[in-house]
Structures are given as C-alpha cells and as structure tokens.
Amino acid sequence: MKRRTFIKNTTSTALFTGLGTLTSCTKATKKHITILHTNDVHSHIDVFPKDHSRYPNLGGLARRASLVEAIRKENKNTLLFDAGDFFQGTPYFNFYGGELEIKLMSMLKYDAVTIGNHDFDNGIDGLYAQLPHANFELLSANYDFRNTIMNGRTKSHSIFTVDGIKIGVYGLGIELDGLVSQKLSKETQYLDPLELAQDTEKHLKLTEQCDLVICLSHLGYQYENSNKPDDIKLATNSAYTDLIIGGHTHTFLDKPTVLKNKMGKDVLVNQVGCYGINLGRIDFYFEPLTTSAVGVSIRV
C-alpha cells in the first residue's frame, strides 16, 4: 500500500514535471544574448567639453551607465566587456592610479576585460594594487604572469552561462617590447597570441562545448607588417571564434568587419574607437536545432 502511494506520487510528479519541462522547452525556442563592449577608454570618465574639437559633448561614464542599464532592462541576458587600455589619458589616472576607473567599471557590472599595454603604466604593481576594486575578470591567454605579483590573478579564459547559453571568452594582449618598459611589466612573458588563440578557442568549443566563443583582443585592428599579429590575421586564422572585440588602434568601425575563418565560417571583428565615445552592441539569437533557418544571418 505504501509502495503504491509512492508510485502514484512518482507518476504524478513525473507527469507534472514532464509537462512543465515540455512547456518550458517549447517556450524557450528562441534565445537572445546581448554583448556590449568598449575599448581604449583611457580613463575618460567625464563627458568631453562642448567646445572640444573632435568629440564635443560626447562620451561620459554616467551616460554609458544609463545606456547599459537600459539595455540590460531590455534584455537581462547581457554581458559587458572591455578590450583593454582602460587606464591612462586623464588626470583621474595620474591622481588615483586607476582606482576610480576600476571602481566605476565594477559599478557598471563589467563581466570581463583584457589587459592593454597602458594598463601596465603604473607597473604591474600598480595594476595589482587596483585588483581589490575589480568585480570582473581579467583575461589574457598570452601574457604569462607566473613570475610576477599578478600570478593567479588573471585567467586565460572564462565561461559565462547566460540563459543556458555557454559563452566562452578569452583575452589576448599585444607584444610588450617597444610599448611597455620592462621596468613596468617586470617578468611578464608575452607569448604568441595567434598560437594561444587557437589552443584556447579549441578548448572552449570542443572540450567545453561553448555555444559562442568571444575574443577580447588588444592586438590592434590591422597592420601592414605581415609578421605583426592583428585582429584581421587572428580572425582568418581562427576556427571556432565567433566574435573578436578589438582595441589598441583606436579604430572607429561603423560596423563589424565580417571575415571568413579558416573553416570558411563567418567571424566578426569589431572595435568602437576610444575614450568611451561609443558602446558596441552585438545581439546573438539562438533557435532550436530543428529550426528551418539555414546558416547565420548577419545584420550589420
């Protein structure tokens, strides 16, 4: 008798759960992930003056905050990234060593950033000193910090699961020689970014089964020198990266550059200039495998 009740209960629970799951399965047919990004903000916190020759009345962190908040209200499945060089460029950095920049980025709920060459401007110790204020991850797959104070404080990649969608994100930094004195970067080792990118994207896609793979790159958009790694070379050499969020060259792209990776699949490269003048926004839509949609429609 007791056993009977148990089975009855199990059945109804199973049926109930089953129906619930089925409904939720059918309900969540389409999923929507929003990726927001900045690069090379260079300590620009205030709005540019109205009489500024290039960026009159543009930018400003308090405005970026309201924009990000509005987008998050519209789609709670939103991630916010920065592609490096958040430090250096206004007295806020000279006076406070980046404390304010990091605190504000935490207030805006940045999810992850990569490290730009200017983020070493107060030395690796200067960057380390601001880490307690950072509620976001520092990602770099090709800076080896093992012999520095930053050891263990950065990750090569991170996985964000948003609305059931797995988003793998990795970071890449530019060659330090000629840009950052060794006095500042100390024992930081720069490793080949294209090589590390391939290892990391492969891990994220094949081992971790990520639905989306995003690179935060401070390599720069494009160089004529064929030996100097850039985002274009990175894109065409990649196999599993869907989006490269770039920085360093302060390139104002009106829209992402769409390239074919070495598997013949589309990969997007985007960069939104500098100084917090723009916010990049990329929306990704997912549908069940059974959908009739073929390929990915890219509207840029």
Binding site: A28, N278, I282, E287, P288, T290, T291
Partner: peptide
C-alpha cells in the same frame, strides 16, 4: 532536441 544553434547576429554602434 532543445540544443540551440546560432541563427542571427545583429550589430550596432551606439554613440554615447
């Protein structure tokens, strides 16, 4: 069957 695939990407640059 619920496994999803990427079907659409839309990009915008928003000026602050």
């Amino acid at each position: 069957q619920e496994r999803l695939k990427l079907t659409e990407i839309q990009a915008n640059r928003v000026e602050i």
